[in-house]
Design a protein around this nucleic acid. Sequence first.
DNA 1: CTGAAAGCGCTAACAT
DNA 2: ATGTTAGCGCTTTCAG
Lengths: 353, 353
Amino acid sequence: MTPAVAAPPRRTRRGSGRATLADVARVAGVSAQTVSRVLNSPATVPEATVNHVRAAIQQVGYVPNRLAGGLASGRSRLVAALVPAIASPVFLETLEALTQTLAAHGYQLMLGESGYDDADEIELLENLISRGPDGIVLTRVLESEAARQRLARSGIPVVESWDLTATPVDMLIGFSHEAVGARVAQAMHERGVRCPALITGNDPRAQRRRQGYAEELARLGLLVSAGADAMARLPTAVVNAPAPMGSGRRALADLLQRHPDIDGVFCSTDMLALGALIEAREHGIAVPDQLAVVGFGDHVLAADTSPALTTIRIDGRRIGTQAAEWIVQRAAGHAVSARVQDIGFELIVRASA
Amino acid sequence: MTPAVAAPPRRTRRGSGRATLADVARVAGVSAQTVSRVLNSPATVPEATVNHVRAAIQQVGYVPNRLAGGLASGRSRLVAALVPAIASPVFLETLEALTQTLAAHGYQLMLGESGYDDADEIELLENLISRGPDGIVLTRVLESEAARQRLARSGIPVVESWDLTATPVDMLIGFSHEAVGARVAQAMHERGVRCPALITGNDPRAQRRRQGYAEELARLGLLVSAGADAMARLPTAVVNAPAPMGSGRRALADLLQRHPDIDGVFCSTDMLALGALIEAREHGIAVPDQLAVVGFGDHVLAADTSPALTTIRIDGRRIGTQAAEWIVQRAAGHAVSARVQDIGFELIVRASA
DNA sequence: CTGAAAGCGCTAACAT
DNA sequence: ATGTTAGCGCTTTCAG
């Protein structure tokens, strides 16, 4: 009897049970490396080998583990998106275009919700960064300096969007909210509105539209009351964002009471504008003849209200598509041609103004 | 001169440049394992060590790499959600609750868009699975057998939702679409509707609501035309899903032409119901006196239309929260108490019916 | 064109 | 209570 030789202590950690590259390699009779090449750069492998390996992949039902791939390559093919509120419809087109474009390139979207305050923003960013995303898309510009620095330091490609700023962290695609306000002011003027008013949410970007609107109205001589500060002279109702339709109704009722002679109102979202339309009808005020109403966002309902809503349209899909393409390019090591893009906006003239 | 000894070939691969566990360990003068424990199970480490290590973490600005952690532990703390269409508002509350609940447990959501056809479903699932999610949430039940098997085989916890089925892949939370239809039929009956009609999308679940509605109406003796097939006897307009409001307007116009005497209409979405409300007004038909209108979904606008919309409310947030909790429990190795949950629905009676 | 070795950053298993 | 070792499954690097 041969003396029993103690087997070396075996630390066993069994894997997931799923087939691995090595399993495929064994079946195909090649090295793991070759299988990896077939998967990632088939052009560098002879066609016969490619086919042979692909058959083995099928046979063992291999699904790559991209966590492992990401760890080894430093490219996770994951992109993080941060939105203020998922349930808000504004960014849906952007999210959708982002997801679709990323998917077309083999990337996957991770979704984070930041809320409207900056409080936990850093923590959330940290959490997303810990997943090693190849890019981060924000549907706003970063305001907190801490968050800006944190992101800049991370070296991860960042796209800020839905706004413009002189100091983007990295890439930027959006439009000028001040210009939107000014454009609506001009439209009011062209329509012959004499006493324009405003219903607006209290979020920073709506406030910037408010400013552009008030200043352009002042320039056009459409602010009747006296004073240097255009915003103070404009009949205005401010509501909490995100504002439901009911807020628009109450806001218009309030405005009409305080300023019975208003004959035009710019609403900072279509939702508010819908409320205004309904409230106007209740008051027997004809839209657009007695009151011109302009919204913002070109909500799906805007074309179907009666009267149909005149509004500002932003190409949210384009923002998502461009953000995705920038990030994919960067991840592929290519430089991005333009890092800042102003996509403007469009005034959609319908019946309400 | 000492003979030059060839240095052993050095395969160098520099990492990301970010601080690692080992860096923290070096600074703190402990092993990497201890740092890991401080991060993942601080209760097992003396407080003094915890504080000491935390200071080192701060000092080097360490952010864990969860790709690596996920690979090593087999738990990615990533959950995949698959929705038919991101831009559709129906699942937003669910998505939001899901994201929030997962975030509270340190998990992150990956979002996938399946479209309304099953074509690329498997491919998309494969893609998500390759990321090693700790769970998959579907806002539907899986219909394709291939996809069901694929998921069952994967061993990943799966939650199907927004529907019920006798054969869930794994966990299930939803409600009966047939029961919704039947409940609306009863409501029509209680209101004294004599000639009920239907405007419906052509998606499978709307069709099941249609069936429940038609059968209950037949039982109540509210289908005037003769025949055995309840669905065939119900005045119905079918539109393509996802249906915009305009489809509802056209559908009602069409119905009124074909069946001038209808006095109640169930719309398979609130969006269609809004269109019906508007079209009724154009025709000078009083809602609810001449025409009762019931929607589905309790859209944010439903309470603010005039007249306010009677509709069916589904607790989408609850679905998201429960799905997240189930998956987190499973990932923690706990068994889940109930694998199937019927959350029912609520008829919200407002002015339109 | 193909393969072997090394290592991505972390955690599980074992040992002290 | 803490450390050591051996992977997780893949890709990069280098050698043929």
